[in-house]
Amino acid sequence: MATARTAPSGRAGRGRRRRGLTVAVTGPTGTFGAGLLPLLEADDRVDRVVGVARRPFDPAARGWTKMEYRRGDVRDPEVLEEAFAGADVVVHLAFLITGTSGREVTRAVNVEGSLNVVRAAAAVGARRLVYASSVAAYGFHADNPVGLTEDWPTRPAARLFYAQEKAELERLLGEEVDALPDLDLFLLRPPIVLGPHAVGGKELPAPLMALGRAAAGLLDRLPVALPVPAPAIPIQLVHEDDVGRALQLCVVGAGPPGAYNIAGDGVVTGADVARELGLTPLPVPAGVAHRVARGLAALPAPPFLPPVLDWVEAGAQPSIMDTTKARELLGWEPRVTALEALRSTLHPD
Rank of each mutant, 00 (worst) to 15 (best):
A83K: 08
A83M: 10
F84T: 05
F84K: 03
A85N: 10
A87D: 03
D88F: 00
V89P: 07
V89Y: 02
V89S: 08
V91R: 05
H92F: 01
H92G: 01
L93C: 10
L93E: 03
F95P: 00
L96S: 06
L96P: 00
I97T: 14
T98H: 14
T98R: 04
T98E: 08
T100I: 12
T100K: 11
G102K: 01
R103D: 14
E104W: 12
V105R: 12
V105F: 13
V105D: 12
V105H: 13
A108C: 08
A108M: 10
V109L: 04
N110R: 07
V111P: 04
E112A: 14
E112R: 14
S114K: 01
V117K: 03
V118S: 03
A122V: 07
A122H: 14
A122R: 14
V124C: 06
R127S: 11
L129E: 07
Y131V: 10
A132N: 13
S134K: 04
V135P: 00
Y138K: 08
Y138F: 15
G139C: 01
D143I: 07
D143S: 06
D143C: 03
P145M: 05
L148I: 15
D151R: 11
D151V: 13
R155K: 09
A157T: 11
A157L: 02
A158M: 09
L160G: 00
F161W: 11
Y162S: 00
Q164A: 02
Q164D: 03
K166N: 04
A167P: 02
A167M: 05
E168I: 02
L169A: 00
E170V: 01
E170Y: 05
R171E: 13
L173G: 03
E176A: 15
E176Q: 14
D178T: 13
P181G: 00
P181R: 01
P181N: 02
L183D: 04
L183E: 05
F186C: 01
F186T: 00
L188H: 08
P191Y: 02
P191G: 08
L194T: 14
A198Q: 15
V199E: 14
V199K: 13
G200P: 00
G201D: 07
E203S: 12
P205L: 04
A206T: 14
L208V: 12
L208A: 12
L208Y: 15
L208H: 11
L208S: 10
M209K: 13
G217I: 10
G217L: 11
L218I: 15
L218H: 06
L219I: 10
R221W: 13
